[in-house]
């Protein structure tokens, strides 16, 4: 079964098309990278799929059913810059927010919810930081908190918007371990990714995007010089699939 299927998706800002005729499907249990140049509409794609942006057209189905947040089968990790880090809340509390969909109206988080959140903190090596106000965490730690929050959502399909941006090596390792663990459990993870050097190593499925789908398939088949050049246009100056891979603009 497909984890995600998108048909005829269009998105426009101010009557200017940002995404056109996007058709794609992503297999269940894959680790998928969405790759493309700046302004290609990668974040827009995720937000449009999850209904955070208005779509001009398009049908979205997740695990064979039309997407609805009420199914609680989708987890989401937003870009780090999107929240107010001065908000009066601590690390554990942010992770608990991942449980709010399950907890239901008017109720407080139960002991079990708190336990789950603590487990997630521990898994990402953040157990000592539970009481920290979120501004006082490093960029990598903030990212790990967001991941932990998605983890406790207990979803089947995860969408992550640039989780590797601006994080330290330790966090990068923690994140990739987590992604592999999720895949191992049969979950699907779809990641907006900007670092071409690590695509082959981290992801088994790749979607090349530049305002529409350029290519979509297993990474080895898609991650070729021709297709990348087609995606990036003139900005891709030097690339070799075996040796050092570098993008210059």
């Amino acid at each position: 079964m497909e984890a995600l299927n998108v048909k005829d998706l269009q998105v426009a800002y101010d009557r200017k098309a940002v995404l056109e005729q996007v058709e794609l499907s992503i297999p269940k249990g894959s680790l998928t990278a969405i790759v493309g140049p700046n302004g290609a509409g990668k974040s827009t794609l995720i937000k449009a799929i999850l209904g955070m942006l208005k779509r001009s057209s398009g049908q979205i189905s997740i695990l064979g059913k039309p997407y609805s947040p009420k199914n609680r089968n989708v987890g989401y990790v937003p870009q780090r810059g999107s929240v107010d880090w001065d908000f009066p809340t601590n690390a554990l509390d942010v992770i608990l927010m991942g449980r709010y969909g399950h907890i239901g109206w008017f109720k407080r988080p139960s002991k079990q919810d708190i336990m789950l959140a603590k487990e997630a903190l521990h898994k990402l090596g953040m157990a000592d930081y539970a009481d920290r106000q979120i501004r006082q965490l490093s960029g990598g730690q903030q990212q790990r908190i967001f991941l932990a929050r998605a983890l406790v959502q207990d979803a089947e399909v995860y969408f992550m918007d640039e989780p590797f941006v601006g994080v330290d090596a330790k966090t990068e390792k923690a994140i990739i371990d987590l992604l592999r663990e999720l895949k191992h459990k049969g979950k699907t993870v779809i990641v907006v990714h900007h670092d071409l050097q690590t695509v082959l190593e981290y992801f088994d499925h790749t979607l090349l995007l530049n305002r529409t789908v350029i290519a979509n398939g297993p990474t080895e088949q898609v991650f070729t010089k021709d297709l990348l050049q087609k995606t990036y246009g003139g900005t891709l100056a030097f690339f070799s699939p075996t040796g050092d891979k570098r993008v210059m603009s």
């Binding site: 937000k47 955070m52 989401y76 991942g98 709010y100």
Partner: peptide
Amino acid sequence: FDPDFAKNSGL
């Protein structure tokens, strides 16, 4: 705190 995430949580 995070309206997008709230939406995704089904609120």
